[in-house]
Amino acid sequence: MTNPTLILADTATMLRRDVRHAVRFPMLTISGLIMPVLFLLLFDGVFGHTLRAGLGNTVSGGYINYVLPGILVMTAASVAEATALGVNADMGEGIIARFRTMAIWRPSVLAGQVVGSVARTLITGAAVCFFALALGLSTNGKALDWLAAIGLFVLLSFALSWLTVAFGLLAKTPSGANSLALILVVLPFLSSAFVPTATMPPGVRAFAEYQPFTPIIDTLRGLLTGTPSGQHGLVAVAWCVGIAVVASLWAVKLYNRDSPIAI
């Protein structure tokens, strides 16, 4: 059953289920929004003044301009973290065992959750951008730049969602799934999210420069402020595609193990 229409139909059915869950149980979606908004307020309102002074003339506009891309990446990670929890809880439900006994496109349960997670990330990201505008964000990006930024944001969310779906499948408990996904939320601290990597001590700097979030953040920053982001863009896309491919294969492999729950 690898007929493309069936793949799309089953994924759409599972997405519908995921959206219904999100609407009826909105806490997970809301918790995904709280963290990035808090960090936005904290870094712009509390640390922003000092951090902006440290940046000097290397950037234009307020600190909000510098920090927003990093916060957006944390948004994608934070929503994906909630997805890990949701998937883990869902996998304990008897209905998943029923899905496994049905002649459907097997990964559709996972694909539906990934697409749902990306949709939640987009909505949450839009909310974060509105907060940023209220806090004085000024953008020089043209419409095309914004479109490209949204495209990269969606790709990032797609990759992180597959990764956290795999975490949700791997972990035996919801808190285990949460701990694994938390790594993704913390990782942006060791990147160019809050300060340029050039200002970091050598060891940290090497890590920060080569970890995937840095080129993604730099690319988003370039697009939003209308400055060229050069080859960062290619590296950013390559990371996202690579993570998505590996994580989705991993997630499907985990899902295809013997059913962990009885029916």
């Binding site: 059953m1 439900e93 006994t101 729950i261 029916i263």
Partner: peptide, 19 residues
Amino acid sequence: EAVRASIGVTGQFSAVDRL
């Protein structure tokens, strides 16, 4: 897949979506 197309299963734990 062919097996799944012809079976239906009701087990000890309710395989329903509670939400």
